[in-house]
Amino acid sequence: MPVQGNSFKPYSEVITGSIIYGTIGVFLDRVQDMSVGSVLFCRLFFGLCMIFFYLLLSGSLKQLMPGRNKKYLLLLGFLNAVTGICYFSAIRYSGISIAVLLLYTAPVYVNLLAPSILGEKSSSKSLLPLLLSVAGVILITRPGEVLVSLSTGSDFMKGLFFGLLSGLSFGTTIVTIRYLRHDYTGISQTFWLTGISLLFMLPSAFLTPTSVFLRNFNTLFLFGLTITFAAILYLKGISGIRAQTGSILALLEPVSGIFFDTVILKSPLYISTFLGCVLILTAAYLVSRKETEACNLSTDLQSVL
C-alpha cells in the first residue's frame, strides 16, 4: 500500500508550532515593568516586520492581496487580540493554572462549532482524544487548588471571566482559520491576523516609557520573531487538517510550556502534571494517526479508481 509522503506534514507543523508557543511563559518572565498590552503590541509589531521582510525577499508579497471573505480577516485579527488580552489577564488575576485550563477549553467550542460552520462531521472516534485531552488539562491544573482559591475574592472571578473568554475566542479562531483555508495561505493569514491585531493593540503602545522599552528590547525582539514563526507553522498546518483535530493538537502548547517552566524557570513538577502531559500526548498521537491513515486510505482508493 503506497503512502503519501507529506501526509504527516501538516500535523508536524501544528505540533512544532504548539511546542514553540510553549516558550511564551519564559519570555514573559524575562520582560520587566511592562503591561500585558504593551508586551503584546511589541510582539505583534516585530512579528509583522518579520513576515513582511520574509515575503519581500522571497518575492511573495502578492500573497498578501486581499481576496474573498475580507471581513473574516478582520474577525481573525480581532479574535487574536481578544485571546491574547484575555489569556494574559486571566494569568494576572487567577494564575497560570486557571488560565491554561480555561484557554484550552477551546476544543470543546470547536467540536460544537465545526459541524455547523465547516460541515465537519463529529464521530464517536473523536470523542476519546477529546476526553483524554480535557482530562489531561484538568490534571495539569490541579482542580483541588482551584476550589480552594475561590475564597480569594473578586480578582479570581475576573480571572475566570477572562479565561472563559480566551477559550471561546481561541476556539472561534481555529474555526475561522479553517474556514479561510481556500482563500488565504497560512502565512497570509498570519500577516493579516498579526497586522489587524496590532491596530487593536495600538493604544497600549503609549503606556510604556521609552527607557523601559529599550531595557527590554532584546527580549521583546526575540519574543516577536519566535512566536511569529510558531504562528506561521501553526496556521500553515491547521489549514490542512480538520479543525477538531487541530484544536486537540494545540494542547501540546501547555505540555511544552510546563516543560520550559520546569527546566528553565525551575518551577516544581507535580505527579498530576506529568500524568496530564501523558494524556495530552496520547490524545495528540491518536488524532494524528487516525487522520493520517484516513488521508492515505483516500489516496489509495483514488489511485485504484
Score class of each variant (00 low, 15 high):
residue 275 L to Q: 07
residue 4 Q to R: 15
residue 39 V to G: 07
residue 70 K to F: 08
residue 30 R to L: 13
residue 225 L to M: 11
residue 249 L to Q: 10
residue 41 F to Q: 04
residue 115 P to F: 11
residue 74 L to E: 03
residue 224 G to H: 05
residue 196 I to Q: 00
residue 50 M to T: 03
residue 34 M to Y: 04
residue 279 L to C: 12
residue 32 Q to F: 08
residue 99 A to E: 03
residue 296 N to H: 05
residue 128 L to I: 14
residue 91 I to F: 03
residue 294 A to T: 12
residue 254 P to L: 01
residue 30 R to Q: 14
residue 207 L to G: 15
residue 19 I to M: 08
residue 188 S to W: 00
residue 61 L to T: 09
residue 36 V to W: 03
residue 161 F to L: 09
residue 130 L to C: 05
residue 22 G to D: 04
residue 52 F to A: 04
residue 158 K to W: 11
residue 15 I to S: 10
residue 108 V to R: 10
residue 266 K to V: 10
residue 229 F to S: 06
residue 245 T to A: 13
residue 31 V to H: 05
residue 257 G to M: 00
residue 244 Q to E: 15
residue 299 T to S: 14
residue 130 L to P: 06
residue 68 R to T: 04
residue 71 K to P: 10
residue 105 T to W: 06
residue 53 F to Y: 07
residue 86 C to E: 05
residue 212 V to M: 07
residue 223 F to K: 05
residue 114 A to F: 09
residue 120 E to R: 06
residue 266 K to M: 12
residue 68 R to N: 11
residue 267 S to M: 14
residue 43 R to I: 07
residue 54 Y to Q: 08
residue 214 L to W: 09
residue 51 I to E: 00
residue 118 L to F: 06
residue 152 T to I: 08
residue 251 L to A: 11
residue 121 K to W: 11
residue 255 V to I: 05
residue 212 V to G: 11
residue 116 S to P: 06
residue 57 L to N: 14
residue 159 G to E: 00
residue 29 D to K: 15
residue 272 S to C: 11
residue 10 P to A: 02
residue 22 G to A: 03
residue 280 I to L: 03
residue 267 S to E: 15
residue 100 V to N: 04
residue 103 L to S: 05
residue 123 S to M: 13
residue 230 A to W: 02
